[in-house]
């Protein structure tokens, strides 16, 4: 049996360098992945956990090169299967801190089944889904999050698949922490990484990531300085949904339908606005659905954060209960079974 990991704080204070591996990073220059990698390497030292407890698991795709660039334990697996491999790692040793790096193709197309089932089980694994709405590594085919009508290498006349909304999919699968953030908003991205680390259960973080080669600017409306404020609303627990350059706009619920109100018009005040509650799953679905109304700003932040017993905790408990009831298994007795006979 593997020895239990000493989860005490590391002897030295880690810096960003401690999480950088000796491998050259080979993403295209200008790729949004660089920022995601940098924010993780920046935030991990804060957690003050021994480096050897981290395991990065990935599938195939640009995002899945991620484990090679982190100086932690890691498996670069096969296409779409990272959640399954990670599940085995975590269940074999629940003391490990397991992170999955995946993309919209790897995690939602070929690996969609593993993703929803991992989230449903609430295994304490953190998923970073790099969403660039395109297949990068295979050079530019459309992905399950590409937009309707998008022209790509494999859709010269435009995409006719309706896209997944990753946040809605994760909510539907029963993930206990679901969030959205952006490669070009480092502070917010860092905060979402912290939230994932501190969550006990499956955490799903969708990260809008710019593929500057095959889908450049897909999220610029949300990520760039001049347009961000009018097109993004940040979700904060217990706070009203306010956005706009001067914080002059807000989101109000009309029945179950979110609508924009002007706070300076005299027709509505902050008191009328929708107040975010991370523990309200109905609200989480409403916020996730805002993506379908192009007039509405795009919510960023934690959609839901609830606590349910994790899969590995329940498994560990079942083993402990069986042992307290039957004692540590006796192998000879097990082999003997219920009915034996002796031949002289």
């Amino acid at each position: 049996m593997p020895e239990t990991i000493d989860s005490a704080a590391p002897a030295v204070k880690y810096t960003i360098r401690d999480f950088q591996s000796d491998q050259d990073v080979r993403w295209c220059p200008g790729c949004g992945d660089y920022s995601i990698l940098a924010q993780i390497q920046r935030v991990f030292p804060e957690f003050n956990r021994r480096k050897e407890v981290y395991v990065g698991v990935s599938g195939i795709g640009c995002s899945s090169r991620f484990p090679y660039y982190m100086d932690i334990y890691g498996i670069h697996g096969i296409h779409g299967r990272a959640p399954a491999i990670a599940s085995g790692v975590k269940l074999a040793n629940p003391d490990l801190d397991v992170w999955v790096a995946t993309g919209d193709g790897d995690g939602l197309s070929i690996g969609g089944n593993h993703m929803i089932h991992m989230l449903r089980r609430n295994i304490n694994i953190k998923v970073l889904l790099f969403n660039n709405q395109i297949y990068g590594l295979t050079k530019g085919q459309y992905s399950p999050t590409s937009l309707l009508g998008q022209i790509t290498k494999s859709t010269p006349l435009g995409v006719i698949d309706y896209p997944f909304v990753p946040v809605s999919l994760a909510l539907g699968a029963g993930a206990t922490l679901v969030a959205r953030t952006m490669d070009r908003d480092p502070k917010h991205l860092q905060e979402m990484i912290r939230r994932a680390e501190n969550h006990h259960g499956s955490a799903f973080i969708e990260i809008y990531q710019n593929c500057n080669v095959f889908n450049d600017g897909a999220f610029f409306k949300f990520t760039e300085k001049d347009t961000r404020d009018d097109n993004v609303v940040y979700l904060e627990h217990g706070k009203p949904l306010v956005f706009g350059k001067q914080k002059e706009k807000g989101i109000r619920l009309n029945g179950f339908t979110p609508e924009i109100v002007e706070l300076n018009s005299g027709n509505a005040s902050v008191n009328d606005l929708l107040v975010h509650n991370e523990e309200d799953s109905t609200l989480a679905f409403i916020l996730a659905n805002m993506i379908h109304d192009p007039r509405l700003p795009r919510p960023m932040g934690v959609f839901i954060s609830v606590i349910r017993p994790s899969y590995e905790d329940q498994l560990t408990q079942q083993i402990a209960r069986a042992r307290s009831k039957k004692g540590e298994g006796n192998l000879q007795k097990l082999l003997d079974g219920d009915e034996t006979w002796i031949i002289q």
């Binding site: 593997p2 299967r81 085995g88 790692v89 089944n113």
Partner: peptide
Amino acid sequence: AEDEIAAICAAIGASYAGS
């Protein structure tokens, strides 16, 4: 597991972690 592929992948992950 949810399917045969996940079953073997989880087993590979577990072996990596020392089971």
